[in-house]
């Protein structure tokens, strides 16, 4: 599903990642970990075409990443960045915002579908009617996570999806992600529990 073939990345004119190769199969769950600044986010950003490899090739769903293929590739992904503040007033608006995009129209979830995901992450139903300022950081992180899951894309890219969660919620998120059997997941994490829960671990840089 996703291949990095001998890729090199540069940051601030210095080599960041050299000769990185990996082959990730459909439905595989991969966690990327390593020290800060080692280039973990760069790898995820490279899949999305936000940064380009200086050398080597990245192939997503048999499509080498290029200006011509990037739109098609971005239709296969959903991405949860580490830190994001979205300009919406209510939880419902925040969840439904990506479904306003033409390509996602047909996947727009009903309240019932949204609340079913709420249940899986132990979020109370009344949160759906709340304002963004009324919910906690942990609740917001889980809601954004389920929003990216509701997009039902084959590739889910997550940057520190449990950074604002307590230990109990981390377990919930792990089980939630593992239940998405068909989805290829690449998650960046510093959380030991989260890292250990994944079958495949990629260490980037050295501790």
């Amino acid at each position: 599903m996703i291949q990095f073939n001998n890729t090199y990345f540069i940051y601030d004119e210095k080599p960041l990642i050299s000769g990185f190769s990996v082959n990730i199969a459909r439905g595989e769950k991969v966690v990327i970990y390593g020290p800060s600044g080692s280039g973990k986010s760069t790898l995820v950003h490279a899949i999305l075409g936000f940064v380009q490899a200086e050398q080597g090739e990245i192939i997503v769903n048999n499509l080498p990443i290029s200006p011509d293929s990037i739109n098609e590739i971005r239709q296969l992904t959903s991405w949860l960045p580490q830190d994001i503040s979205l300009p919406y007033n209510s939880v419902r608006d925040m969840i439904l915002a990506p479904f306003e995009f033409k390509a996602n129209h047909s996947r727009k979830p009903s309240d019932q579908e949204i609340l079913a995901e709420f249940d899986k992450l132990k979020l109370e139903h009344n949160l759906l009617e709340k304002g963004i300022t009324e919910i906690s950081g942990g609740q917001k992180q889980r809601i954004l996570l389920l929003t990216t899951v509701l997009l039902r894309k084959p590739i889910l890219l997550l940057d520190e999806p449990t950074s604002a969660l307590d230990a109990q919620s981390v377990d919930l998120v792990i089980n939630y992600l593992k239940s998405l059997t068909d989805t290829t997941i690449i998650a960046i994490s510093h959380d030991e529990k989260f890292i250990n829960a994944f079958d495949r671990k990629l260490l980037i840089g050295q501790f």
């Binding site: 999305l48 936000f50 971005r74 239709q75 992904t77 959903s78 991405w79 960045p81 830190d83 994001i84 503040s85 979205l86 300009p87 990506p98 995009f101 390509a103 996602n104 990216t148 997009l151 894309k153 890219l157």
Partner: peptide, 10 residues
């Protein structure tokens, strides 16, 4: 990030 979020999510 908001712009990239939109771009990466369809």
């Amino acid at each position: 990030t908001n712009y990239l979020f939109r771009l990466a999510n369809g």
